[in-house]
Amino acid sequence: MTLTKHKYLCSLIAFLLIYFYSSVSTARDLEQIKAEGVLRHIGVPYANFITLYIEGDETVVGGLDAELMQGFAQHLGLEYEFLEASWSNAFTLLTGKSASYINNQLQRGQIDHGIEGDVIANGATILPWRSEVVDFSIDYFPSAVWLVAKAESDLIPITPTGIIQQDILAVKKLIKNHDVLAMKQTCLDPDLYNLYDTEANIILPITELKLNEMVPAILNNDAESTLLDVPDTLIALQKWPGEIKVIGPVSDDQRMAVAFRKDSPQLRDAFNQYLQEMKKNGEYNQLVKKYYPSVFNFYPDFFKIKHQ
């Protein structure tokens, strides 16, 4: 009796060990995703990249990235699943381990939370620290970070010199002693642009804000000005004409891309291939036009279709 019990316990342990080993060592790449039949899209609601709205009892996901990923899933012959995330947990959901940028340094978590999704796509800006955590696809949207102020602010928009670095310097000079709203962990992280060196009064929101809540915050007198990325600025200028003004650039030109786990190169390659094809046949520009009609005016070169 004890002998059989012992035997049973041994086999159970062996099975668990094998299972653990295989789950750790086997990369969750295209093949496995295909085998499971679902592409899980992690997204942080942001500008017109990811929009969430409630219709009846259902939360409907939309936006440029949602459509892009739905198309990609269909291309792969997979079901599409959306996982809503915030900037603080997006990487955890993708890689199983947390990652954040604190004091100009990348901090990695040690606890394995388990992988929930396969791809982050929500207009994520390619930042050096992020590149250490994930692999980005080829870029698909241009961006930059601007300083946006309330219309009645003393801050006067700079006169463009034609050289971006000089314009950035001009802006940084302007904000000395001015309130600037920024947000950690995102592309609006003040550490990324050494804003603390400008002697500006950097205000970080007490409660976690979404990026599209930055302008309402300054209109609410939470701060005089805010950092804002270009796509959000374009929308804000339409939404609140005459109430805000763009002072000038804080960052160089940036690029946005889709983030993949470092151990799923095949999935990333498949996406790159898919995106290239879309760009080439104009489908991608059609998609962009739907969500950002005026972006072509700012970045005509970026969206020029290249025929190779």
């Binding site: 928009p157 763009v246 650039p249």
Partner: peptide, 16 residues
């Protein structure tokens, strides 16, 4: 309104 706020074509006005 945007123009009046002093915004430059390069930074924002072009969209309007």
């Amino acid at each position: 309104a945007n123009k009046n706020s002093g915004m430059s074509m390069t930074y924002g006005l072009r969209a309007s």
